[in-house]
Each structure stands twice: as C-alpha cells, then as structure tokens.
Simulated scan of single mutants.
Amino acid sequence: MHPVHSPVVASPWYSIVAALVAVMLWSVAPLLAELAHTSSPLQLTALTLLAGALATLPLSRKVPTATLSRGWQLSVWLGVPLLIFGAVSSYFIGMRLAPAAEAALITYTWPVLFVLLSQWSRFGKLRMAGVIGALIAFSGAALLLLPQALSGGLGGATNGYALALLAACCWALYSWLGQTAPIALTPLLPRLLLIACAIAGCASLLVEGNFGVPDNEALLAGIALGLGPYGIAMVAWDKALRFGQASVVGSLAYGVPILAAILLVLAGMSVLDWRLPTAAALVIVGCLKAGYGGGHNHP
C-alpha cells in the first residue's frame, strides 16, 4: 500500500480497472477478518502474511540493496517488515476489541497521516490544506466514539480503537518509506512479507502460546486475506499507479471504508446507523482535502 510515481500512459482505463480491483479486495478485508475470528489474531497475521508473500512471488527480482547505506538497509530489511507486522496485527486485534466497521474506518485514516508525514519531510512544515483535511477526517472518527464516551466510557473498545489508529500510523510510515526509499520496495515485497510473517509467528508463540492449525473457515479466510488484500491488491495498486494518473487512481482508495462497511452490514456483522456513513463521508472528504490541497494526490 505504498505510492509509486509514474507518468500517464495512453490507456487510462487499465489503471482505473487495476485500482478498482485493489479497492474491492481491500474492502473485503474486514469481512474476511471477521470470518477468521476463531483464529488468534497473531496466528492469523502470520498466515495472512505467508499467503501474501506467496501471492506476490511473481514480483520478486534482484535489487541492488548492497549499495544502500547501513541506515537504509536497516530501514528496508527490519523497519518495513516491522511496520507491515504492526499494521496487520494491530488491525486484526483492533477488530476483535472494537466494532469491525468502526475499527476499519479508523484504520483508513492512514492516507491523511501519510500526506502530513510527506509534507513535513519534504517541506519541513505542514501545509494548511493538509491540517484542515486531517481535522475533517479525524472528526469523522471522533463521531463514531462520541456517543459511547458521553454515555459513560468506551469500555473495552477503547483499546480496539487505539490499535486501529496504530495500524493507520504503521501504514502511513510504510507508505512514506516506500516513497522515500532510494530503491523500489515492490520487487522486495515477497521477502519483506516473509520476514514480517516470521516476526508474527514468533510473537504468536510468545504471546498466544500455541500455533495450531486454525479451523477450516479461519484457515480459508486467512489465506484469502493474504492472496487478496495483502497480495493481489498490492500488485494491482502498484500497476494502477505505474500506468495511470496518481491523482485519479488514488482518489478511488477513499471508497474502501464505505464499501467495507456495506459488506459488513450486508453480512449481518455490523449494524448501520446514521453515524457510520456520516463518519465515512467525513474521512473521505478529509483525505481528499489533504491530498489534493497538499500536493500529494494519492495514498
């Protein structure tokens, strides 16, 4: 889920179709994570990342990482896998502790966080459009939490929302590294996912205590998560941004939280009230404001 700068080519429909494939697959992620609820979250993370590594294997090719400075080598081979592990595991755990649709929506504030981070690293300051966009996006997230807070606290969901926000921060940092790294990360993605999978496996053994085979539904859902949202979707998104106009393609990603919420409601795993679509609209408007007004037209 990181940006790739590219020129526009003659056939924009190719990039739009590729972007829509990625968006649809990302939208299914919360539903698949709910179907895999019988698997422990760290075990599910390891399974998902392993399937993602296998799905992205055709992308793998040799990249001259030996020419990188020691700092960049550490960032690529340790920092990126840790961020992937942090993003995926926090997302899965957060969805166990808080309502899935709300947790997914909070996680998908990551594009506006990425815009702010990019502005700060590039210009040494935040642009007003980015700040306003962030305020709008986070007002949407706050709208989801306000009623519970006013009625006596968020209870156990507080940790879930915090972990969803942590997942958003991890994706934003991962995207920023993908943008600023002196080499393309996409050809390294299978190896980076495998390292992240190893980290998740060790964490599962240490924290959860066992690493048995999940039941059939959880196993299939975990494999589908890796093949789709964390495999094919990442490849499709890379192609969309390489062969299309980033401002057009990137704006499609802001539909993910709405589609994800609709799928959860249709599956009977979430209840629709006025707050969820209103919050989703605020998040999308905030991301668009930050992106188009702040000089970065894609997540």
Rank of each mutant, 00 (worst) to 15 (best):
G79V: 01
F243V: 04
W120A: 12
G255L: 15
C197R: 01
S139C: 14
S75M: 11
S118F: 11
L227Q: 01
K125Q: 15
A134Y: 15
W274S: 10
L57R: 10
A36S: 13
L49D: 01
L59E: 08
V235E: 06
I258M: 10
I262A: 11
V112E: 03
G156K: 15
W171I: 12
A101N: 09
S11M: 14
G130A: 15
I183F: 15
T67L: 13
E217Q: 15
R61K: 06
F138H: 15
L173K: 13
E217F: 12
L192W: 01
A142H: 02
R191V: 02
L173M: 15
V17W: 06
M95L: 08
T180D: 14
A253K: 05
G86V: 05
A260Q: 06
L272M: 15
V207Q: 08
E34D: 10
R191K: 08
T45G: 04
V9N: 05
Q43C: 00
A18Q: 05
P214E: 02
V4P: 02
A221H: 04
V17E: 03
Q148C: 01
A181C: 12
A240E: 11
L189H: 03
W77P: 09
L205Y: 05
A33Q: 00
R70K: 13
T109F: 03
W176F: 09
C202M: 09
S151Y: 10
G178M: 09
L194Q: 09
Y108V: 14
T65W: 07
V131Q: 09
A141S: 02
L42W: 03
I16G: 02
I195W: 13
G209M: 09
H5Q: 05
S11N: 12
P7S: 05
R242E: 11
L163E: 08
F138A: 12
P111A: 09
L154C: 03
A203G: 06
D273V: 07
F123R: 09
G244Y: 03
G133Y: 10
E34F: 02
V249A: 14
P30T: 05
A233H: 08
L47I: 03
A51M: 00
T180I: 13
P81G: 12
A253P: 00
